[in-house]
């Protein structure tokens, strides 16, 4: 993989608002493209990121309270890891109950799909509470499309 260009900061910190989800997505898209990550792979990484950011914007902070999220992008030889941090209430989304994907239309509820997709698409996902921060790191391979 190409090295990160020096004029691009691989850390993105934004206020936890709906508008920031789109801003963060566009900036990560530009960085992944500069790194030479394939379009197919970049879309999957951006999907995982969107799902995690939607969670943070919806739940991490009180409705009227300010708060930020931060995204760190760390490429290695054959993989890329994104670490998403917020400083809201302790919350491990990986403990959420998985959606019942076998149910019919009447029984299906939309909740839980986002985190389910992150788990299914990423090679690994882990959560830690680090001091007053929630930190989720997820890794995608950057080689072939599978895995």
């Amino acid at each position: 993989m190409k090295p990160l260009p020096r004029d691009r900061d691989a850390a993105i910190r934004l206020p936890a608002t709906d508008a920031s989800i789109e801003t963060a997505g566009a900036r990560v898209d530009a960085i992944l493209s500069a790194l030479g990550v394939s379009r197919e792979r970049a879309l999957r990484i951006e999907l995982a990121l969107e799902e995690l950011l939607v969670n943070i914007v919806s739940y991490a902070y009180p409705a009227d309270g300010p708060g930020d999220f931060e995204i760190l992008i760390a490429p290695s030889a054959d993989a890329i890891t994104l670490t998403v941090t917020d400083w809201g209430r302790p919350f491990n989304p990986l403990e959420a109950e998985p959606p019942r994907t076998g149910d019919g239309i009447d029984d299906r509820e939309p909740g839980g799909l986002g985190i389910h997709l992150v788990r299914e698409l990423a090679r690994s996902v882990r959560y830690e509470r680090a001091g007053d921060a929630n930190r989720i790191a997820f890794t995608f391979p950057t080689g072939g499309i599978s895995g």
């Binding site: 939607v54 239309i105 009447d106 939309p110 986002g114 997709l117």
Partner: peptide, 20 residues
Amino acid sequence: LEYISSAGLRIFLATAKKLK
């Protein structure tokens, strides 16, 4: 369409529930 997240899936589910 090249990308859909769970926000989009919700709309398909809600629309199907409305139409049924």
